[in-house]
Computed example of a mutant assay.
Amino acid sequence: MSERFYLYDDTEETKTRFVSFMGENQRFDLAITSTSRHYGKHLVLDMLSNRFAIIGSDDLDEPGYLEQVYNISEEDASELRSFLYEVV
């Protein structure tokens, strides 16, 4: 077996917020990790769907972004977007 080639192998202190809330149609269970790794953006993991994205306010302004990343309806994405604007 050849020697493993790492592109990077860093350890960093992070802050993670776990939050759960009920929207009109679905429940959101999120883990939101803050790190300096992604230029001020947050790693947002939806623990119910096992989907995640690196999100900043510019991503929230992108039409259809949350719908595509989390595979949710426009209405559910609107509720999630509203919450994430408070966080990111």
Rank of each mutant, 00 (worst) to 15 (best):
G40E: 04
S73G: 15
S57L: 11
S36W: 01
Y70L: 01
A53G: 15
N25D: 14
T35Y: 06
D58Y: 10
Q26Y: 00
G23V: 06
L48V: 02
S57T: 12
A53I: 02
Y39P: 00
N50P: 00
S34H: 01
Y65I: 10
S73V: 06
I55T: 03
F28C: 03
L48D: 09
P63K: 14
D46P: 01
I32C: 01
Q26V: 10
G23T: 06
V69E: 04
D46N: 15
M22K: 14
E62R: 15
M47A: 08
I32P: 01
E74K: 14
L60F: 10
A31S: 14
K41N: 10
R27T: 15
R37A: 12
L30T: 08
S34Q: 07
S73R: 05
L66C: 09
Y39R: 11
S36H: 06
Y39Q: 13
I72W: 05
M47S: 04
T33D: 06
E62A: 11
G56I: 05
H42P: 00
V44G: 01
M47C: 08
E74N: 12
N50I: 00
L60V: 08
T35Q: 01
Y65P: 10
E62K: 15
I54E: 06
M22A: 07
F52Y: 12
G64Q: 13
F28M: 07
N71I: 03
Y39E: 14
N25I: 01
D29W: 07
M22R: 14
L48I: 10
E24M: 09
R27N: 12
K41P: 00
E67M: 09
I72P: 08
R37M: 12
N71E: 11
Y39T: 01
H38Q: 06
T33H: 08
D46I: 07
S36A: 08
K41V: 04
R51V: 05
E74F: 14
G64W: 10
F28Y: 11
S34T: 08
F28A: 03
S73F: 03
G56Y: 04
L66Y: 03
G40Q: 05
V44T: 01
M47K: 12
